[in-house]
């Protein structure tokens, strides 16, 4: 049989279009809609800049989750992980200094991710329930560690990371760009990226290819921690405090929505970092638009749930169109 020509049916073409340009179209529609609805509040440079600045919080955290969902797993403890790493790091920043605090935050989050990975792979416990348990444990430790006192940070370095700017653009954007660059290199240019994809698309085939599937999974859980650590620094820096109760509330939801909306299949295998980034922007653009248009915040909450269901349905539609049954 000759395989040197690729032919797509119209259905597959629709699917390909949806996966390539669907998100950009959605982003433009949302941006266009709110820009025309409330131009004075929405279609301004400061608002645009802020939206992008805030999107880094979800955008960076979603990088690790993209890898994780690509391997067919979940981590719903990221919100609490963010809080625990954030409060410990912030307390260190207050006592010792911002730079050390940043390092500690990232190390703690990395460690927490690693613990999740060990539990899921070595004990073969489903990820959802392990990380659900961890969600509460991490949060509880965050409360206990701080005695439920928010850690207000004045450290200049720390504050600068989230609020400073460079060449007219907010610093977090650069940090996010670096994170995505590193993640992109890992996924596309490094062996580990291949392993992640292989484990996600067919873990049996990966194992037969000599890949230590469990180790890859543990690594990916750990990566979730790394990126959540970075997001924790930025989040507490932007807010000026690390609050053990409020910090990261609902974060897991936003992050998972971003990854799924970005086109990563929940069953693992395929996924795109670009999609995740666009989806993080969509979420923030929508949220900012609704807030500026004074949509009741409770409606916004309902909307986020509906968006997640729609995102999954959209993904299902896409895979159905391309004709790929998982």
């Amino acid at each position: 049989m000759d395989d040197s020509k690729v032919k797509f049916t119209p259905k597959q073409r629709a699917g390909n279009f949806l996966s390539s340009f669907g998100l950009i179209v959605i982003l433009l529609i949302i941006f266009g809609f709110f820009s025309s609805l409330i131009p004075k509040l929405y279609f301004t440079w400061p608002n645009f800049r802020d939206m992008i600045r805030f999107s880094t919080y979800v955008g960076i955290g979603a990088i690790g989750m993209t890898f994780l969902i690509m391997t067919g797993n979940f981590d719903i403890s990221v919100g609490s992980m963010l809080a625990l790493a954030g409060v410990i790091g912030a307390s260190i920043a207050i006592k010792i200094g911002g730079f050390i605090g940043v390092i500690i935050t990232i190390i703690i989050a990395t460690l927490l991710g690693f613990i999740n990975g060990i539990f899921v792979t070595k004990l073969k416990i489903p990820a959802f329930i392990t990380t659900l348990g961890m969600m509460f444990i991490f949060r509880a430790i965050a409360y206990i560690y701080t005695n439920n006192v928010p850690q207000y940070i004045q450290d200049r370095f720390w504050i600068f990371l989230g609020n400073g700017s460079f060449l007219g653009l907010p610093l977090p954007i650069y940090i996010m760009a670096i994170c995505y660059l590193i993640a992109y290199l890992m996924l596309k240019k490094a062996p580990i990226g291949r392993y992640i994809l292989a484990v996600g698309t067919n873990s049996k085939a990966a194992a037969l290819s000599g890949i230590h599937v469990d180790n890859v999974k543990i690594l990916v859980f750990t990566l979730v921690g790394v990126f959540v650590g970075v997001a924790a620094v930025l989040n507490s820096s932007m807010l000026g405090a690390a609050n053990p109760g409020m910090m990261g509330d609902g974060y897991e939801f936003q992050v998972i929505t971003a990854v799924v909306l970005g086109g990563t299949a929940l069953s693992g295998g395929s996924g795109s970092l670009g999609g995740t980034l666009l989806a993080a922007l969509i979420i923030i653009f929508l949220k900012s638009g609704m807030s500026n248009a004074q949509v009741n915040s409770y409606w916004q909450q309902v909307a986020t749930g509906v968006v997640l269901i729609l995102a999954v349905s959209l993904n299902k539609l896409k895979f159905w169109l391309i004709g790929q049954t998982q």
Binding site: R194, L197, G200, T201, N202, A206, L208, I211, S270
Partner: peptide, 18 residues
């Protein structure tokens, strides 16, 4: 199908994985 193909990956990536 079950334990050979890495469906979501390219021909090149499938060949070089080991």
């Amino acid at each position: 199908k079950g334990e050979g193909l890495l469906y979501d990956m390219s021909v090149l990536q499938n060949l070089s994985i080991i």
